[in-house]
Design a protein around this nucleic acid. Structure first.
Length: 124
DNA sequence: GTTATGACCGGTT
DNA sequence: CAACCGGCCATAA
């Protein structure tokens, strides 16, 4: 079995802990994971393994508050899931000021304490 | 090694 | 507002 990368583990752990009724953005998750600039990779992780994990993948959207999925990828499914959790969507947009998940520093630390840090390629 | 590929982002036009 | 652009960075091939 191939071991998943530290970044992968961190990202998954964070997403698993987004509470119902809240959302996060790709770049936000990357930042929390200690991998600022890796927003694209967060989406990469989701598209490659969201269906096979117990991941609340629908709670992750882009920095404009919009759904990044295409229709054939489950665009409407994502909207329905969010609405069901009480997330208000106006003109295809979620108001991040209201719904963005903002864990306390303490919470964040406790979530990631057992996971190895992400080390950028440029330093490896 | 190199090149291609993202459910991306921020600034600019 | 929206569309475009250049940069971003870890993987897959």
């Amino acid at each position: 079995m191939k071991e998943k990368s530290p970044l992968y583990k961190r990202v998954v752990k964070l997403i698993q802990n987004i509470p119902s009724g809240k959302v996060a953005t790709y770049s936000h998750i990357a930042g929390l994971a200690g991998a600022k600039g890796c927003a694209r990779h967060v989406s990469y992780i989701l598209s490659s393994s969201s269906k096979s994990q117990n991941l609340p993948w629908h709670r992750v959207i882009n920095s404009q508050g919009k759904i990044s999925l295409r229709v054939e990828q489950g665009y409407f499914d994502q909207i329905n899931r969010l609405k069901k959790e009480g997330v208000n969507i106006v003109a295809d947009k979620v108001y991040l000021e209201t719904y963005l998940w903002q864990p306390t520093n303490k919470k964040l630390k406790s979530l990631l304490k057992d996971l190895p840090p992400h080390i950028p390629l440029s330093v490896r």
